[in-house]
Design a protein around this nucleic acid. Structure first.
Lengths: 121, 121
DNA sequence: TTGGTTGCTATCAATTTTATAGCATTGTCC
DNA sequence: GGACAATGCTATAAAATTGATAGCAACCAA
């Protein structure tokens, strides 16, 4: 049987509709999963190795509640795991982290061009 | 003078604190900006050229209110612009889109491995 | 047994997002 | 000149998510 209390939170899953997309296409699922607050940040902070729940919480400047919600999602999707020394990236997670490298490179260039600086009057 | 009514919405800006980060480091600003709902999706949907407000809204499966909020942010940060035929990516925006390619490649591989499928019992 | 650390859960307020409705242009078409 | 249709939004209220804070059970060490 599958639990009796209503789920107030659902983990994105490939092949089924996710928030903002009815198709369930992988890229959409990924965009939903990674588009949630601090999801990308967690990936980023785990880049140099495992961190304990609390260390990760401080690194991400977030709250235990949200961190735990995100960790459940990232663990359920095989991106993060809770190994011996704390939370760390799985093989898939490391690949994802690598796939994010161009993003940080872009961010730096973007900042250098002053684009972000012109924002917000 | 700088408007008298209090701003209920702020656009992330390099060098100043953003949601989830007090440092204002470019990567953090980018993670905040792109970590907001449908932000990445908008970038994705504009990959093949300009779309009108409404076409973009349908493509992103979102509402005018949210779309408009995101567009303001993306326009203020020089990632999206409203040219002749509708909304489209700026030069920076196109670079960002390119920087996201590895992500979609990852998403496909991730899906193929069935990782996302195991999620959410 | 007194402390510290870790990994959470519980509550509640604040903010964000979703769902709808609708309006002021602008540009056809007849 | 109407009668559309399309575009680019704004407005409003409800639902969902996030942020802040408190606190607890398990474990380890002194």
């Amino acid at each position: 049987m599958s639990s009796s209390k209503k789920p107030r939170h659902r983990v994105p899953k490939v092949g089924t509709p996710v928030r903002g997309s009815k198709t369930g296409r992988p890229i959409m699922v990924a965009l939903d999963l990674l588009g949630r607050r601090t999801a990308l940040r967690i990936l980023w902070e785990l880049r140099d190795g495992p961190l304990t729940f609390r260390a990760l919480q401080e690194a991400c400047e977030t709250t235990p509640g949200l961190l735990n919600t995100r960790l459940k999602e990232l663990r359920a999707t095989d991106i993060v795991t809770h190994a011996d020394g704390g939370y760390c990236l799985t093989a898939q997670g490391r690949k994802l982290r690598t796939a994010l490298n161009p993003l940080s490179a872009w961010a730096q260039a973007w900042a250098d061009e002053g684009a972000g600086k012109r924002a917000q009057d």
